[in-house]
Design a protein around this nucleic acid. Structure first.
Lengths: 196, 196
DNA sequence: GGCTGAAACGGACCGTAGTCCGTTTTTATT
DNA sequence: AATAAAAACGGACTACGGTCCGTTTCAGCC
């Protein structure tokens, strides 16, 4: 028999490629921290990582892809909290409490990374995609609550107002206090899930 | 006494400026029609309108601003329908019927202009801004329905799922039938407005 | 170690958004 | 009609995202 592993998916990354990916992410993060999102030019990232510009594009496809990769780190950490962190965000609390905590937490996360999310454009569309973790978890919680109806669309409806672009509009341009926005979302949730 | 008119706002536009604005909008629209949104480069628009590139930026600030100006025309037509068109979108129908018609109509509009809206970026943020016509009308209808609570936020919550970026995700990437998305929104509305 | 093919690299190059400033046009005034 | 200030114009110029392709490096095999 041969030693080919059974479908290990796409070819594993070559060592220099992996090294450069790390260096590039590092460099990009540092640029975000020191110079803000606008300071993250592809040339600057390449230079700081000590590689050629072509390499940046080879690894991340586009500036948006690079931004999305940056986002992905905090997204992963957040997912871990939802899956196995302390309640009420993590498991152990009643479903409604978890749902509200989920929304509040998502709200904070999206606001904190608003500029990065914007810069990631469509590549940063990680909330509202049905296959996204956030959408799946939202559907799960709605199910737990015994909500009837088109769960997928209800989940999307509850996630939409948590999108960074909406929250920035409300809290920054319209100067609504975050508390009020949060309470408004809670109210929305209660209206959506209540029985007749 | 002097003849200064009482605050006629910002200086009126000079004749050549007005002429060029028209020519530019025309040129941009033609480029959208013939070459798609991507074909609308600032150089192409300037060339087709027979003016210099600097003029395009002077009139519209940025590519996003130009796209937003294009959008503004259909937006205005739509507003006219809502304000004075035939029911149920226009006045004369029961508030709930108007609200549902409003959502369906907005959904179609946003989907039809999805690419333009994306290209307009933040300048195309005409739906979810509280001062926007759509938000104001939504608040008005919710009031008519006697809905209690934070009307401004409820309006935003009902408008968010109608954003082009969400609808494109649902109908194109996830291949949900438009009917289903529409029904989902109707369901959301009924849940939100119903009394306890 | 040496070979080989595939993968990765790098940086010159291209297209486009946006800026800048010297020149031209408009409009109000006399 | 002449004049002058303000506004608008135009196109060369810059910076950045993205591509291309000749060169280099890696990994598996003898």
């Amino acid at each position: 028999m041969d030693l080919l592993p059974l479908a290990d998916g796409p070819t594993p990354e070559r060592s220099d490629a992996a090294r450069n990916r790390e260096a590039l992410l590092r460099a990009a993060q540092e640029l975000v921290d020191h110079c803000g999102t606008d300071g993250v030019t592809m040339d600057a990232v390449a230079a700081r990582a000590g590689v050629g510009k072509g390499t940046v594009f080879r690894r991340f496809d586009s500036r948006e892809g690079l931004m999305a990769a940056l986002l992905d780190r905090s997204e992963t950490a957040w997912q871990a909290e939802v899956i196995s962190g302390p309640p009420p965000l993590g498991p152990g609390a009643p479903a409604l409490d978890r749902l509200l905590a989920f929304g509040h937490s998502r709200m904070e996360l999206n606001l904190r990374h608003a500029r990065l999310i914007e810069a990631a454009g469509r590549a940063g569309a990680r909330s509202y995609a049905a296959e996204s973790f956030a959408a799946m978890h939202m559907r799960y919680l709605l199910n737990e609550l015994g909500v009837r109806g088109d769960i997928a669309l209800l989940a999307a409806a509850l996630l939409s107002p948590l999108e960074a672009i909406i929250l920035v509009q409300q809290t920054q341009r319209e100067q609504l206090p975050l508390d009020r926005v949060r309470d408004g979302w809670d109210d929305l949730v209660r209206r959506v899930i209540r029985e007749d």
